[in-house]
Amino acid sequence: MYAFAYQRPTTVRQVQSALGKHDDAKLLAGGQTLLPTMKQRLASPSAVIDLGHVAGLSAIEKKGRNIVIGAMVRHADVATSDLVREAIPALAALAGGIGDPAVRNRGTIGGSVANNDPSADYPAALLALGATIVTNKRKIAADDFFQGMFTTALDDGEIITKVSFPVPAKAAYVKFPNPASRYAMVGVFVSKKGSDVKVAVTGASNEGVFRAAGLEAALKAKFNAKAVEGVAVDGSNFISDIHGTADYRANLVNVMTKRAVTKALGK
């Protein structure tokens, strides 16, 4: 790890001001991606701003028909939250499947969403549930937020404070983990609310998380696993690596979608 200055603000305003003072500061949430990157000397921030003591980022609340999760809420806390489990069990299950138990005790929703790793689980949930990302400056719809691998709509100095999830009628997430890293090689989040169906796919594409229009159309017509059969998944811009070529990942998108739909239907 390269040397850096360590800052420990206690309010979002102080975070903002610390960001302003350092050229290439990094926000440290759970650190489960940032620290390994820094350890490998692949990142060299001049300052690390620890969000661990910032007030107001760690609540899980029900607000109207939404579940609102603070940016610093750990995956383990989402997984075990009664509120989340009751309202959006698929989201709790997703959080309970990120990384491993020790990683879930540190990693946060805000960190995961801000990083937008193409193999991360949370972005699929945000997209498929039509979540809203709340920052210190504005509210951003998930559809506008994720802009390709490791790229988001966040401006410099903009800090995620919470994520708001509308409660769906039915939802499920099924992932196919990379055998080595256990990150999602393909993860599919399916949700249904009224006649609207959303299917979000993570892990597969060179452009990061995306909504699968063809699968959504098929499932809007009929929300069952059979409806997905034979629906072509365009893998032309999918990731190809030693673990899975694009065509294998395309197959997995189809298979995981079927399984997610079956799960969402409680079968």
Binding site: R8, L28, L35, P36, K39, D50, P101, A102, V103, N105
Partner: peptide, 11 residues
């Protein structure tokens, strides 16, 4: 339980 190799002592 946490991974102490992925946690700053400062935090």
């Amino acid at each position: 339980a946490i991974k102490s190799c992925t946690t700053l002592a400062a935090t």
